[in-house]
Design a binder for these strands. Structure first.
Lengths: 111, 111
DNA sequence: TGTATTATATAGATAATCTACATATATAGG
DNA sequence: CCTATATATGTAGATTATCTATATAATACA
């Protein structure tokens, strides 16, 4: 799989996961891998810096939650700003897919 | 439009155009822009180096064609190798889109 | 004649991913 | 008990694909 295809949509996927429920980083990696049949095997070195960027931007907020004696995990929550950003990104994604499909279908229906 | 989304699919789009007919660089830029309603406004500085890379790889072949006194244009033709590469890329693209859609649809149908 | 469009090209900047490394806790097996 | 693996987060440096900016030159039009 050409990793370059992933470029630009990773943030959208993470925001989407957080729209459903709060998650910690490692959980996002696993969830993405499961849902995509390992098309997305996001690396830790990609995820954590990206989470920090999203937090700086105000799209997500972090909080620590330790469940009974175990080491606390760093959970993330989607903010209202992040919710707006997600909608933008989803719209861009739809537009992008539509455009690619139109090229792939070729000139048959246009020329 | 987030340009990062484009990443990785540009080569596929160019190979696809050449599957339909031989084209020169500038023509590819215009054709992509038209078909995508300017979702893809590929820059010359992106296109020409990419064409050279595809040529080195053996995916495409160039030939000059001057039509009656005018300056000759550098046309490109898809090679059998490039045809195979295009099929690979299209398959990857389908897989990628499917995976993203599955994440966007959320846990409703999986969890 | 000069300006915009067509056409190709290169150099350097930016951005997003990767690999590799670093750290620490929890769990399972020998 | 010790060790290896899985869990969990993090940073540094390399790679890659895009962009902007610049350069060149021919054609079309005013």
């Amino acid at each position: 799989m050409d990793k370059a295809l992933l470029s630009g949509s990773t943030a959208m996927l993470l925001l989407k996961l957080l729209e459903e429920q709060d998650m910690y980083g490692y959980q996002m990696i696993e969830t993405l891998a499961q849902r995509s049949d390992h098309t997305f095997d996001l690396k830790a070195g990609t995820l954590y810096p990206l989470l920090h960027t999203l937090e700086e931007r105000g799209d997500i907020e972090a909080y620590l939650e330790g469940q009974g004696g175990t080491r606390p995990r760093r959970y993330y929550r989607l903010t209202p700003v992040g919710r707006g950003r997600l909608q933008e990104k989803e719209q861009e994604w739809r537009q992008y897919v539509t455009a690619v499909e139109r090229v792939l279908k070729g000139g048959e229906c246009l020329a």
